[in-house]
Design a protein around this nucleic acid. Structure first.
Length: 429
RNA sequence: GUGGGAGUAGCUCAGCUGGUUAGAGCAUCAGAUUGUGGAUCUGAGGGUCGCGGGUUCGAAUCCCGUCUCUCACCCCA
């Protein structure tokens, strides 16, 4: 019986692995240069940890199992609860601010579709212990810094930013009851995702009072921060939230990424735990789900049994990002980058042992070196060198036998140099 | 979990309303070619036509089920 791969999983052949590594290596490099330190946790945790803050729907999308000791466990669908647990355990000794990142492999038992699989990688960055929206600005900056590094520009992607705090204040100011807020958020989050008519109908279902509904509709038509002032009146909370957004955009401007960023009142985020600034980054073609999303979650650590400490962060999965980079042709020269540096070839079979010595020396000197197992004509060996994207070929022939010289061939230009063996290796350093 | 579309070689696909031994291009391997590669030419290997059942003298082709992929919905940490 032929065994097939499991639904929603991927096999990474070397060419796929090269793309995955391109994505993940850059995640790591950008995190480090933005001052984040790497952490990781176990790939499974107690099931209860994920049920704590999630509804039944989300709990049903976990890969859960019972171990031999009767413990109910689940493969991690996200790493934030693990982060909360780890930070809470050492909260009194960790120097602040806590700036951590991780690149966990996650599993969710959802139905796969475009940009969403059952197993994927997700870059997470979090800043814990900073109230100031400068931390939110840094999270956004770091995300944009990454996307720019991949070659994407403000013509390709946009950061849409809003504030849960603002929405909460205004909805309360409009007279919407607190217990209705979650439902209303759920609808508002759809604003950019469904047709205008559908949006209005959905709104009607959660806000029956027509004068309140009208206020909300008018609010959702707002397109810039400036227009917000008309709505707030003297409401202190709302005005503070607007001030915070203005400060955030000021930071983003100073850091030079303002062209990527836009205020968008339709960004609410599905999750209940967001408390302040929220944002999502989209591909401008609008055909895909969000590339990444994040925001402030000031209550989460307390919800997981710790002190109340402010936190903000974001997550970026590899699926949508991979589609975007592929579409924009940004996986360039990966086979070249991963190719062999020196392919060592024989023009004389009696030099087999000398060839192995050269290969071994190259490898010990830290160079990517390889050779042909089966040998054959020099032509065949050069052909193999091309197949593995070798940058240079080192040829051992009569020059070696007579004068201990190597032929060094540049596979790109075809140019050849003859150098003495010891000169060659001393130049390598 | 609900609904639409699709499964023929590693990949992209052809295969007429059911009728010999299921094809092509690309890729792979070998040879032309034992002192110079990417090209070209020649040849070879590779398929239980996703799987199971049904209809039929006969099924890649028609029907049912199932699995997988894919798109949308739910949800989206």
């Amino acid at each position: 019986m032929e065994i097939q791969s499991v639904k929603g999983t991927r096999d990474f052949y070397p060419e796929d692995m090269a793309k995955r590594n391109f994505i993940a290596d850059l995640w790591k490099r950008v995190s480090l240069r933005n001052g984040f330190a790497e952490y990781d946790g176990p790939i499974f945790e107690y099931l209860a940890m994920y049920q704590l803050k999630s509804g039944d729907e989300i709990a049903s999308q976990l890969f859960a199992f019972e171990d031999r000791g009767g413990r109910m466990l689940a493969i991690r669908p996200e790493i934030t609860p693990t982060l909360a647990r780890m930070v809470n355990q050492r909260i009194n000794t960790l120097p602040r601010p806590i700036k951590w990142f991780s690149i966990p492999r996650l599993c969710r038992a959802e139905r796969p579709q475009k940009g969403r699989l059952r197993e994927f990688f997700q870059w997470n960055i979090d800043i814990i212990g900073v109230d100031d929206c400068l931390a939110d600005a840094e999270v956004i900056f770091c995300s944009v810094d990454y996307l720019m590094q991949t070659g994407l520009t403000s013509d390709d992607v946009v950061v849409r930013i809003s504030s849960r705090r603002l929405m909460a204040a205004l909805l309360e100011y409009f007279g919407i009851e607190e217990q209705q807020l979650e439902k209303v958020y759920g609808v508002l989050d759809k604003k950019n995702k469904v047709p205008q008519e559908t949006f209005e109908k959905m709104l009607e279902e959660v806000i029956s009072d027509s004068s309140k509904r009208q206020k909300v509709q008018k609010l959702m038509a707002v397109e810039s921060l400036g227009q917000l002032e008309d709505f707030t009146g003297a409401d202190e909370n709302a005005n503070q939230a607007i001030e915070e957004l203005k400060q955030l955009f000021n930071y983003l401007d100073i850091m030079g990424i303002t062209e990527f960023c836009r205020f968008d009142i339709g960004i609410v985020r599905g999750l209940a735990y967001y408390t302040g600034i929220v944002f999502e980054i989209y591909d401008k073609s609008e055909q895909l789900r969000a590339i990444c999303g994040g925001g402030r979650y000031d209550n989460l650590l307390a919800d997981f049994g710790g002190q109340k400490i402010s936190a903000t962060g974001m997550g970026m999965g590899d699926c949508v990002l991979g589609i975007v980079l592929e579409e924009k042709g940004l996986f360039k020269n990966l086979s070249q980058k991963n190719g062999i540096e020196y392919f060592v070839a024989l023009a004389d079979e009696s030099l087999q042992n000398e060839l192995l010595k050269v290969v071994a020396r190259l490898r010990r000197a830290g160079r990517k070196a390889d050779f042909s197992y089966k040998g054959g004509s020099l032509g065949k060996q050069l052909k193999q060198a091309s197949a593995v994207n070798a940058a240079m070929c080192v040829i051992l022939g009569e020059e070696f036998t007579q004068k201990k010289q190597l032929v060094i061939k540049n596979m790109d230009s075809g140019q050849q140099d003859i150098v003495a063996v010891e000169d060659f290796f001393s130049r390598l350093g």
